[in-house]
Design a protein around this nucleic acid. Structure first.
Lengths: 236, 236
DNA sequence: CGGCGTTTTGAGCCAGCTCAACTGCTGTGG
DNA sequence: CCACAGCAGTTGAGCTGGCTCAAAACGCCG
């Protein structure tokens, strides 16, 4: 928990919340936080739980407090593509749209803090800094989406898997690390859907990376990366 | 040219400009337009002309006035992926960043209206509606990028080419059309780099679509689509 | 221990790639 | 006016990376 001289003014719900520092709530003053918190509800979701469907009407937005949320799109025949992953304290939702255009699903166990569409829209209209934060996050997501397009369109299966592991490692851990160890927040099927590959190909490439000592697999989902730089070299 | 009761107040440069209606300049009042126009320069660029490089420092932004701009990313070994196309009157540039992270290149003959980074940033700080427009465009680009990730990751070559032609047709022409005819604003190589395919595969798929009477190729770049719905069915 | 979901491994196939040749258009110069 | 060089696009033949289908191995929980 961070030190914060205004702790006494902010709602109990928000006191220790990351979204107030690095997330969109950082744009709000104590008074606005109180207003928002009145309409807010925290929730915990099991892996696999769908948070919003591709064509659902949007009635609320949320912050990701803990865990990883998977955003995906689907073709009529069932082919699926994961188009984004969201980590705490990302904002979730598509402002100014009727429907979300993507399915949001809890990849790991997830905690969210959600509030009605109207509450956010009211705040946006009276606080330009909130819109600035939204713009910043949207630009970040656009950058990530474009990076990923390069991966999807032009990298080999081996490079795709290395890129995925690199992305997870750098998003789950504090920056400037050399080696790391973590639990994969997603299944092989999710990885495959993110990379535009099949489960089997993902599995084979992971096996190969392990055989070449680029990664270590402790338990099924438990990965250690002894040298991030070495992994990065495999990313193409 | 649109009718506009304020024509007399706005700078000559801006009078007939689409960006003032559908682009970001729509957020500006005549006075702000005058300020911006003072630092503005229109330019025409030949196809292939690089407008900004992937690692270039950003010193100015621009509106696309005419033509199509191609945004791309490259791997060290030269593999390239087109990550976006911009049409008039799109805003071009990555606000709040040191470097652009993508290469922008004129795909067709292009006209731009560019202004220094600082001029836009000043206006943003004093006019929240401008930031709102930027957010709207960024969200639109993010939606498009995610749609394209589905195409890149999960569609077959045939579906990819159909999707590309559909995208171009619907972006170049007024809405609610059934049939259309247009000149492709990009080369086969660009299409391939957009779709994550090779030139040869693109060519074969176009030939196939023609053989199946989904499209007509008049001259090399001149395409007619007799039935947009039929094309859409090929998009997967 | 047995059942079930996830992951790995194996074997064969095919969509899309590579390499190479050809076509057709355009501009240039003799 | 033709020759020809250069570039964009097409076509062909063969190869291969990643897919498909099938089965075995590995947890994990009751």
């Amino acid at each position: 928990m961070r030190k914060d001289i205004h702790n006494s003014d902010v709602p109990r719900l928000c006191v220790s919340c990351e979204a107030r520092h690095r997330g969109i709530c950082g744009a709000l003053n104590p008074e606005e936080l109180v207003t928002l918190a009145r309409h807010t509800s925290k929730a915990r979701h099991e892996p696999g739980r769908q948070l919003i469907g591709e064509t659902d009407e949007i009635s609320s937005y949320a912050n990701v407090m803990r865990g990883v949320v998977k955003l995906s799109k689907m073709l009529e025949d069932g082919r699926q593509q994961v188009v984004g992953l969201q980590f705490a304290p990302d904002f979730m939702g598509r402002p100014f749209a009727e429907s979300s255009a993507v399915t949001a699903e809890a990849a790991s166990e997830v905690e969210t803090c959600s509030f009605p569409k109207s509450a956010l829209e009211t705040l946006i209209s009276q606080n330009p800094d909130l819109e600035h934060r939204l713009l910043q996050q949207t630009l970040k997501e656009l950058d990530e989406a474009r990076d990923w397009m390069l991966t999807l369109g032009r990298k080999t299966a081996a490079e795709k898997v290395a890129s995925f592991l690199y992305l997870i490692a750098t998003h789950l851990e504090p920056e400037d690390i050399v080696s790391t160890s973590f639990t994969l927040p997603v299944t092989r099927a999710d990885i495959a859907d993110f990379l535009g590959l099949t489960i089997e190909t993902v599995s084979r490439q992971i096996t190969k990376l392990r055989a070449e000592n680029v990664i270590e697999i402790v338990a099924n989902r438990q990965v250690t990366i002894p040298d991030l730089k070495k992994l990065h070299h495999r990313c193409g």
